[in-house]
Simulated scan of single mutants.
Amino acid sequence: MKTLLHVDAIETFYGKSQALHGVSFHVEEGETVALLGRNGAGKTTTLRSIMALSRVASGAVRFDGQDISGRETHEIARLGITLVPETRDAFSLLTVEENILLGYRPGSPFTLERILDLLPIIQEFRGRKGGELSGGQQQLMVMARGLAMGPRVLLLDEPSQGLAPVMVTAVAEILQTLKKERLTVVLVEQNLRMALDVADRVVLLEDGATVDTMSSAQALADPPRLEKHLAVH
């Protein structure tokens, strides 16, 4: 398979405080990779660094073979990387359909019709205003808006955070759908079971550094290897 995204020894600072210490991993085309780690491990900063929302001080981010480390965020988005942040950022006065279409990029294979076909649960509230939705419904909507941009790589930051169990299940089903569509995804997720169910590989971060990489099958077969860095059981 072709390596589509390569994060190579990146270091990122917030002021004088160093947040990332040489984070490295790669994502192959059509693969789902989960970034796992405790709170504060550097997962969100890694996604922000890929998108140039946080500037990389050293190292490189390569997309489809080209170094994009010095690009502006809007340029990176145009190249085909889309970030769905944990903040959700719904436009409260627009309908769900309008929110989704706001992200549509001409030529995107994910038209509104195809999105509604892939994610039929959105049909239930497509006419409601963004500000009227539950947190879970907003999450589904912003994931759909991200798809409408036609990404080659979709970055998802904590899509199940703070959601009711029924909506966590809905998010998990969407992730499985994207996996079947062979969309390339980088997932940050605290729900370990969900992450392992959908990811092909997991990258473990600790204190802003990459400490281990393994397949999901390896992670499931060797729980102590995860517990060492995640403090989970």
Rank of each mutant, 00 (worst) to 15 (best):
S49C: 11
I50L: 01
I50K: 01
M51K: 01
M51T: 05
A52F: 08
A52V: 02
L53H: 07
L53Y: 04
L53K: 00
R55G: 09
R55K: 15
A57P: 11
A57T: 13
S58I: 02
S58G: 11
S58P: 08
S58V: 06
G59P: 11
R62W: 11
F63W: 02
D64E: 14
D64C: 03
G65S: 08
Q66T: 15
G70N: 14
G70L: 13
G70C: 13
E72L: 15
E72S: 14
T73G: 05
T73V: 12
T73S: 14
H74A: 05
E75S: 12
I76Y: 02
I76E: 04
I76Q: 08
L79Q: 01
G80S: 03
I81L: 10
I81E: 06
T82K: 03
L83Y: 03
P85A: 04
E86D: 11
E86T: 09
T87S: 14
T87P: 09
R88C: 00
D89N: 13
D89K: 13
F91H: 01
S92Q: 13
L93T: 15
L94G: 03
L94Y: 04
T95K: 07
V96N: 05
V96P: 05
V96K: 04
E97V: 09
E98M: 00
E98H: 07
N99V: 01
N99P: 06
N99E: 07
I100M: 01
I100E: 00
I100S: 02
L101P: 09
L102R: 03
L102T: 12
Y104C: 00
Y104R: 13
Y104T: 07
R105A: 13
R105Y: 11
R105I: 15
P106G: 11
P106Q: 09
G107I: 07
G107M: 10
G107H: 04
S108G: 06
S108V: 07
P109G: 02
F110T: 00
F110C: 02
F110R: 09
T111K: 05
T111E: 01
L112Y: 06
L112I: 12
L112W: 10
L112P: 09
E113W: 09
R114Y: 08
R114P: 08
I115G: 08
L116A: 03
L116I: 06
L116H: 07
D117E: 15
L119G: 04
P120W: 10
I121N: 13
E124I: 12
F125A: 07
F125S: 10
R126G: 02
R126V: 14
G127E: 13
K129P: 03
K129S: 14
G131C: 05
G131R: 03
G131P: 05
G131A: 08
E132R: 12
L133I: 06
L133E: 00
L133A: 06
S134N: 05
S134R: 09
Q137W: 05
Q137S: 03
Q137E: 14
Q137N: 07
